[in-house]
């Protein structure tokens, strides 16, 4: 699971959960996997994602150094090549391989095995 994907996941499907976002990451194993740097793509995506969640996730995994410490990125950050490179690493290169995602409201855990988060829930949990 890459952090771009984590940025979109919620546990809102669970009964009585109001926001279910962001899911807390507990990583047992994470690694860096190189991907091609596409500055235009990062600049486009950064407007669509929740930066605060991305920052927190990177911090949890020990990769926040070099990221602008803010809630919302400004124009200057989005035009800075170094910042975009860092965001590229955080969004697309960090992979959580083993661990789990925890619902912030109920504590329900969604396991991540072999890099794949399992978001399935039982009928009774809906």
């Amino acid at each position: 699971m890459k952090l771009i994907t984590h940025n979109m996941l919620t546990s809102k499907i669970l009964k009585n959960v109001v926001t279910g976002y962001p899911l807390k990451i507990h990583a047992v194993k994470a690694e860096l996997k190189k991907a091609d740097f596409q500055p235009d793509f990062i600049a486009r995506m950064i407007k669509k994602i929740d930066y605060k969640t991305l920052y927190q996730a990177a911090e949890t995994l020990g990769y926040a150094e070099g990221m602008p410490k803010t809630e919302i990125l400004n124009e200057e950050d989005m035009n800075n090549e170094e910042t975009l490179k860092k965001l590229h690493e955080v969004l697309l290169e960090i992979e959580v391989i083993e661990g789990d995602l925890e619902c912030p409201e109920t504590g329900r855990k969604f396991p991540i095995n072999n890099g794949i988060p399992n978001m399935l829930v039982n009928e009774e949990e809906l």
Partner: peptide, 26 residues
């Protein structure tokens, strides 16, 4: 190119729009 996988049920996703609104239009 980066590819990610998630395990989920389309039927469950469809139950509530809020389940996936963060994904929509991305």
């Amino acid at each position: 190119n980066p590819v990610d996988l998630i395990q989920a049920d389309v039927k469950q996703l469809l139950l509530k729009k809020e389940n996936y609104e963060k994904f929509s239009n991305l």
